[in-house]
């Protein structure tokens, strides 16, 4: 029974990863050869195509650096502002806080397109367009509602005794937040940081409408490249895709255990609500 399940999981995972494996093979120069029946592959593996990225898109490596830095800063900012709010929401006794919490999930579901057009206009007026800060702040804001929802669930599951003890000891609000609550939900905070990083890294519309080309992230560069109908041969495109996927894959590889703490709804939610 257990073996059957393992086989089923392996088959499903294999099916989902097949397109990626195909792309990975193309990136190292192993390409399909249709001339034979049945078709097979050509070419010895090579790393040349990774070097070709810089030839096709000279600023690619710079864009990779911009993406990385913007995503790191945006993820940290998101969690930094979402955590206190999530705590307040979880400990609040106001009526309607449930609706507010669910409102954050609705806000997280709101497509960026719904406000991207005026956001671009306003950013231009306050001179935040085409700046690294403007893009980072906007990315942080877009992902913040989801972070509030997830962190709220984690805080909601915590017993309040630790906080009560700290209050009796005379600890202030921010001390309790930093020294008592944060360590207790550290795995969820770490998992949220990882997920936010992925969302920021992959975001297209926000950095696209907030730049006229000065500050570019990888998704914007990809869209520019293909919108202007420039041809890119498949191995180079595949290499670029793999290079921009690699940091995320490594991140998830390192944090795969911590990511188990990323839950949309704390289990204790129902008892508290």
């Amino acid at each position: 029974m257990r073996a059957a399940r393992t086989i089923a999981i392996a088959a499903v995972t294999g099916a989902f990863l097949l397109p990626l494996a195909w792309t990975g093979l193309a990136a190292i120069g192993v390409l399909p050869d249709d001339s034979m029946r049945p078709p097979s592959w050509t070419g010895p593996p090579t790393l040349d195509h990774i070097a070709d990225i810089g030839v096709a898109e000279p600023t690619f490596w710079q864009e990779l650096a911009t993406s990385t830095l913007a995503a790191i800063l945006a993820a940290c900012l998101t969690v930094a502002v979402a955590f206190p709010a999530a705590f307040a929401l979880a400990r609040s006794r106001y009526r309607g806080r449930r609706t507010v919490t669910q409102g954050f999930l609705v806000l997280a579901s709101l497509p960026v397109m719904a406000y991207a057009i005026p956001l671009a206009d306003l950013s231009r007026r306050v001179h935040l367009i085409d700046t690294f800060a403007g893009i980072t702040l906007a990315e942080a804001a877009v992902t913040a509602p989801l972070a509030v929802f997830v962190l709220h669930g984690a805080v909601g599951q915590l017993p309040t005794e630790w906080e009560e003890v700290a209050v009796i000891d005379g600890a202030g609000l921010f001390r309790i937040l930093g020294r008592v609550v944060l360590p207790l939900i550290a795995p969820t905070v770490a998992a949220t940081l990882v997920v936010m990083f992925v969302l920021d890294w992959n975001m297209l519309l926000v950095p696209l409408v907030l730049t006229s080309g000065e500050v570019k992230t990888v998704p914007v560069a990809l869209s520019d490249f293909f919108t202007f109908e420039r041809e890119l041969d498949w191995p180079t495109a595949a290499a670029a895709l793999m290079v921009s996927l690699a940091p995320l894959a490594m991140l998830v590889g390192v944090f795969h255990r911590v990511l188990e703490s990323f839950a949309l709804q704390g289990r204790g939610d129902r008892d508290i609500g």
Partner: peptide
């Protein structure tokens, strides 16, 4: 989770 890590545009 790998397919989700591929950005929509990629």
């Amino acid at each position: 989770l790998l397919p989700w890590l591929v950005s929509p545009i990629a």
